Every structure is written in C-alpha cells, then in structure tokens.
Simulated assay, not measured.
Amino acid sequence: MATEIPGRPDVDGPPLVHLLQEFSLEANRYVDAAGGRNDMHRTDLNALSVIMQHTARNQVVTPGVLRRELHLSSPATTALIDRLDKSGHVVRERQGADRRQVQLRMTPKAYRDGGAMFLPLARHMAAALESFTPEELEVATRFMTAMIEATVRAGEEAAAPAGPADPR
C-alpha cells in the first residue's frame, strides 16, 4: 500500500513520460561528463548546438540569437562567446553592408571536438536503434516530434507573463 506524502505532487503518469524524464536526465549527465572532459560547460555545448542548427538552415547566428535561445543575459552571452572564441570553437565575423553586426561561426576545431565528444553516444544509440524495425522507428520519430513540440509549447506558456488570478 502506497503511503501518501503530504504536499507531494502527484507523480503518477504515463510510463513514457517518466522514461522521457529519465532520458533527459541521462542526456544531461552525458553532456556534463563529455563537456567536463573537454573543459567545456553545458552552456558552451548548447551554444555550439544552436549555432550548428542555425547554420544548417542557412540562418545568421548573432550574439542576440544565442542570448534569446539560451535565455542568457547580455553579459553572460558575452562571457560565453569569449570562452568559445578563446577555445578556438567560434569566430566572430562582420559581414554584409552593416559591419556593426557580429556573426558567429563554428570553426573546424569545433566540429572535430564535438564529433569526438559525441561519438560514443552516437555509437551506442545507433547500436540500440538496430533492434527496431523501420515502422517502429517511424512511430518513435512521430512520438518524439510530438513530445518536443509539446515541450516547446509548455516552455512558451511557462515563460509568458502570469495572467490575473482565477477568481474561483
């Protein structure tokens, strides 16, 4: 018989949600371990991921983009870019007609280091995926896409200013 703990939120829910939470925790632990071995903070790795994603979509990455995507203050963003520049992972460039706008680009070193850091994870994940059929992977892909979209919506809701209190 389960003992109810006063003040404890209800943690019962779909097992898949619990597995997603556990996956997120383990992924964070991996990033911390891989980054730590390479003297990089989780924020550094997240910044490189943001730059890589935007670059893949042919989008310009500026300090403002990093600040917004990583929810950092301007001074924290500057410190982050300084670290990535000093480590040789990012360069600042000024291009186009407006030479005031700084654009961030990953260096070949960033791609090499990132590949080396995440190769063990990619190798183990690839091996785990081999036991699934293409149809199962299609369902899993749809599921993960829906969970990511739900998480984005929840994050937007959590970031929105609080409305008036419910008078009920």
Results as ranks from 00 to 15, higher is better:
Ser74Glu: 15
Gly36Thr: 05
Ala146Arg: 09
Ala158Tyr: 10
Ala122Val: 13
Ala76Thr: 06
Ala140Pro: 00
Glu69Ala: 13
Gln59Ala: 05
Asp10Ala: 05
Leu119Pro: 00
Gly7Phe: 04
Arg68Tyr: 06
Ala159Asp: 10
Glu157Thr: 14
Glu156Val: 04
Gly35Ala: 00
Gln21Arg: 13
Asp82Trp: 06
Arg142Cys: 02
Glu22Gly: 02
Ala47Trp: 00
Lys86Phe: 07
Asp39His: 10
Asp98Asn: 15
Thr145Pro: 00
Ala33Phe: 13
Glu4Ile: 12
Glu136Gly: 03
Arg29Thr: 10
Arg168Ile: 06
Arg94Ile: 04
Ala56Ile: 00
Gln53Ala: 15
His124Cys: 03
Thr141Ala: 14
Val90Ile: 07
Glu136Pro: 03
Glu130Cys: 11
Met125Ala: 15
Val50Leu: 05
Ala127Cys: 01
Glu69Arg: 15
His41Ala: 14
Asp113Phe: 04
Thr145Met: 10
Gln21Leu: 15
Ala2Gly: 08
His89Lys: 10
Thr107Met: 02
Gly13Tyr: 03
Arg100Asn: 06
Gly96Trp: 01
Val91Gln: 11
Glu135Thr: 14
Phe132His: 07
Met106Ala: 08
Ala34Gln: 02
Ser87Asp: 12
Ile5Gln: 13
Pro120Phe: 07
Phe143Ser: 01
Ser24Leu: 09
Ala34Cys: 04
His71Thr: 10
Ser49Asn: 11
Arg42Val: 14
Gly36Leu: 01
Glu22Thr: 12
Glu26Met: 11
Pro134Gln: 00
Ile51Leu: 07
His124Tyr: 11
Ala160Trp: 05
Thr43Leu: 10
Gly36Pro: 03
Val17Arg: 01
Glu135Met: 10
Phe118Cys: 01
Ile5Tyr: 15
Glu130Ala: 14
Asp12Ile: 03
Leu129Thr: 09
Ala97Phe: 12
Arg168Leu: 11
Gly114Asp: 06
Val50Asn: 01
Gly88Asn: 07
Ser24Val: 08
Asp10Cys: 04
Arg94Trp: 09
Leu66Ile: 04
Arg57Asn: 09
Ala27Ile: 03
Val50Ile: 13
Asp85Ser: 04
Arg68Trp: 02
Ala159Trp: 01
Leu121Lys: 00
Glu149Gly: 05
Lys86Arg: 15
Asp39Ala: 13
Met1Phe: 08
Ala160Leu: 06
Gly13Val: 02
Leu104Met: 06
Ala97Asn: 12
Thr145Leu: 13
Ala79Met: 08
Ala154Phe: 12
Glu157Tyr: 08
Thr62Val: 03
Arg67Met: 08
Ala165Ile: 10
Pro14Asp: 14
Arg8Cys: 14
Ile81Met: 01
Gln21Ile: 07
Arg105Glu: 04
Gln59Met: 08
Thr55Ala: 08
Arg67Cys: 03
Met117Phe: 03
Asp12Ser: 15
Leu16Met: 11
Asn46Arg: 12
Arg29Leu: 12
Glu26His: 12
Thr78Asp: 10
Ala159Asn: 04
Ala146Lys: 05
Gln101Phe: 04
His54Cys: 09
Met125Cys: 11
Ala158Ile: 05
Asp32Asn: 11
Thr133Phe: 06
Gly114Lys: 05
Gly13Met: 07
Val61Thr: 14
Leu48Ala: 01
Glu130Asp: 14
Pro9Asp: 04
Thr145Ala: 15
Leu70Arg: 01
Glu130Pro: 02
Pro167Met: 06
His54Trp: 02
Asp166His: 13
Met1Thr: 09
Ala56His: 08
Glu138Leu: 05
Leu129Met: 05
Val91Ala: 09
Phe118Leu: 13
Pro15Leu: 07
Asn28His: 09
